[in-house]
Structure formats: structure tokens, C-alpha cells
């Protein structure tokens, strides 16, 4: 899955309900997240529902695993991973996530709390890469 494929898929879906359903499908396809990793240290603060993130650097590249209680969060996380997984710290810091999600037509449908929660997750991803570069 790539951002371009996401764009193509989302652009085929005109109403929000279809987009929402597709988002949930994406979230369901997230890689398994070990229960043992759902610890306070991995919890992402500032989210409406519970979200966890683990991060690992391999050489100069950063890989992430994300889990969440809410379907929509998992879907957003799946898209986030398309944008950042396997990237260098500079590349991760250079991405404009707002613009990317706006291109997909997703941001305007999220509630302000959801948007803030998602911003916290993005921030956590960028910080993790930065701190561990």
C-alpha cells in the first residue's frame, strides 16, 4: 500500500460513510500489536481513546507499530504508517501530515478531539524518530 494507492482508493469513495468503512478496513489490516507492549510507556497521551505505539530503528530507518481501541484511530494509524514506515528521520520530519490527510479528504470529517488526538500521535512518531536518530 502506498500513498498514491490510498489517494486513488479514497478518491473513488465520494461519501463519508464509504470513506469511513474503507478506513476501518485499513485499520483491521494493521500488523498485530503484542498485548505485552500495551504498557503506559508505549501509550500515546492526548488521544480520546487508548493508543499505543512502539518504534524501532534499523540502521538509519525508522519502523513503527501502532494499536488503538477505536476503529477509526487504527485506520488513521494505518495511513500514517504508509507515510512514515521505513523512512529516515529527516524524511519523517519533512512530511506535512495535515496536507497528506487533507489530500485524502479525511481531516475535515474528524471531530476536533479526534484531530487533536491524531496530532498527538503524529507528534509522538516524529519525536520518537528524532530522539532515536
Amino acid at each position: 500500500m502506498t500513498e498514491r494507492e490510498l489517494l486513488e482508493n479514497f478518491s473513488c469513495l465520494t461519501d463519508w460513510e464509504d470513506k469511513y468503512r474503507y478506513l476501518i478496513e485499513l485499520g483491521d489490516a494493521l500488523p498485530a500489536f503484542p498485548e505485552a507492549d500495551k504498557t503506559p510507556a508505549h501509550a500515546v497521551p492526548g488521544c480520546q481513546s487508548r493508543v499505543w505505539m512502539t518504534h524501532r530503528r534499523r540502521g538509519d530507518r525508522h519502523f513503527f507499530n501502532i494499536a488503538g481501541d477505536a476503529h477509526i484511530v487504527r485506520g488513521l494509524a494505518a495511513i500514517l504508517l504508509v507515510l512514515v514506515d521505513g523512512r529516515t528521520v529527516a524524511e519523517i520530519q519533512s512530511v506535512d501530515f495535515d496536507a497528506a490527510f487533507r489530500r485524502l479528504g479525511l481531516l475535515e470529517h474528524l471531530s476536533p478531539t479526534r484531530r487533536n488526538g491524531f496530532a498527538s500521535l503524529v507528534q509522538r512518531v516524529q519525536e520518537s524518530a528524532r530522539e532515536d536518530a
Binding site: 524524511e91 519533512s94 501530515f97
Partner: peptide, 9 residues
């Protein structure tokens, strides 16, 4: 080099 401005590299 790469230059990222307005979120685009």
C-alpha cells in the same frame, strides 16, 4: 540536497 518547505521535499 533536499529542502522541505511547506511540508514538501
Amino acid at each position: 540536497m533536499s529542502l522541505a518547505t511547506r511540508g514538501n521535499s
